[in-house]
Simulated scan of single mutants.
Amino acid sequence: MALTETTSTRALREKTDKSLEEERDKTDEYLTQPFQEVEDNTHEKVHSIRHAVDQVKENQREALDDDKERVRATADTPLSQVDDELLAEERERLDTLQAAEREAVDRVRAEERAQKESLVNALLDHERRQTDSHLLDERIHVDRELITREQFLSIVSHDLKNPLAAISISARLIRKSISKGETGGLLEHLGRIQHSADAMSRIISDLLDVERMAQGKLTLDLAKVDLRVLLQECGELFAPLVSQQAFSMEIDAGAEPLFADLDHDRILQVLSNLIGNSLKFTPNGGAIKLSARKRETHVEVSVTDNGPGISAEAQARIFERFSQLNVAGHQGLGLGLFIAKWIVAAHKGRIWVTSTPGNGCTFSFTLPLSF
């Protein structure tokens, strides 16, 4: 089964893409006015240079005309020769002025390009730092995700090998007992096989659920259900295990019906996960309370235990995929609460945990009331 991209990874990638898009948009937006100011300043400088050159040209023409009149009045040289000499001198001066004008204008244009480049670099440096930060976050998260997947595969292998080993051992013992004509321990061995097969089935179901969720193929079969009846069903389902571990279980759902439009099996799955966690992490002899309360527009369902509780750090990530509590002897896929959160969200509800280490914890979720 393919391990699909997580929601958080997609969110980080979308954040980076958005940052890159915003970088381009902001660059265009922020540079428009500064560029216009630089261009206007350049235009004024070029206009001033050309005006000055035009003024020099005009003064030179006036001086040249005066020279022509003076030479014509005093020189013995033919007038045509005088005009040719003065025209050549005028062209040389004009060429010099035009060269100086071009050099000055080129210098101003070069300054304009340098100023624009400086503006772009200053802005892009700021925007790129932000985008680089997002890219770094994405890379770190992806690297962490790869490590998590390696851990996940290790846990899957471990969790599947254990029940498989139990099935294999029990099967060999049954075969040995039958070959010897002994039937005393058969029911015990068969019970162990059944328990192990159920465990493997839960693991595979969780993996399939996560894959369906990633592909948007996990659907709900909604019906009007009384949550009081559903809680009672949960109590009966876990009664043998509760009794075996010397737990006490209390159900408090009030006297009035609490109807909600929900997928019976999926909400039973959520409750089973929460109750199973309480039984798993609370020492034998603990207490579990199932409760349901009607609010204005929804029902609030809670599972409370008096176990060791959950730290604030763990509470912040407990609903993430592959998240696990570091409790000795208790290792799992870290998918149960992730799936529970998705199921509750699909019902347009929310799920959360409140806990103080050493004083147990309460998992609560909401479901819209059926009117």
Rank of each mutant, 00 (worst) to 15 (best):
F338T: 00
S248L: 06
Q36C: 01
L124S: 08
K176V: 10
K348L: 12
T354L: 13
L164T: 02
E188I: 11
L94Q: 13
S118F: 04
N326Y: 14
R144T: 02
T16R: 01
R266I: 01
V56I: 15
E69W: 01
S302L: 08
T7F: 11
L237E: 09
Q245I: 01
E138Y: 03
I251C: 05
W342H: 10
D137H: 14
V344I: 05
A114F: 03
T304F: 09
Q98S: 03
I178W: 15
F363V: 04
S170E: 00
T4N: 10
T219W: 13
E92D: 15
R202C: 11
N162R: 12
E44Q: 14
V156M: 01
L12T: 09
E62A: 02
G329H: 09
L164P: 08
T6S: 01
Q81A: 10
Q81Y: 06
L241V: 02
S133Q: 15
P357D: 15
S311I: 02
S154M: 11
V156Y: 04
H347L: 06
G332F: 12
N59I: 04
L274Y: 01
E39T: 14
D125Q: 12
A345L: 03
L97C: 07
L173Y: 15
E29V: 10
K180R: 10
D221G: 06
A328I: 07
W342C: 10
A197D: 13
D95R: 09
A75L: 09
P78W: 00
S370P: 09
P308V: 07
A52R: 01
E296G: 01
G360C: 02
S177P: 09
G191A: 15
R107L: 09
E111K: 13
I140Q: 01
I343Q: 04
T148M: 02
V301D: 02
E233M: 11
L136I: 05
E313Y: 05
S154D: 14
E112S: 09
K217Q: 03
E21D: 15
T354E: 07
P34I: 05
R61Y: 13
N273W: 03
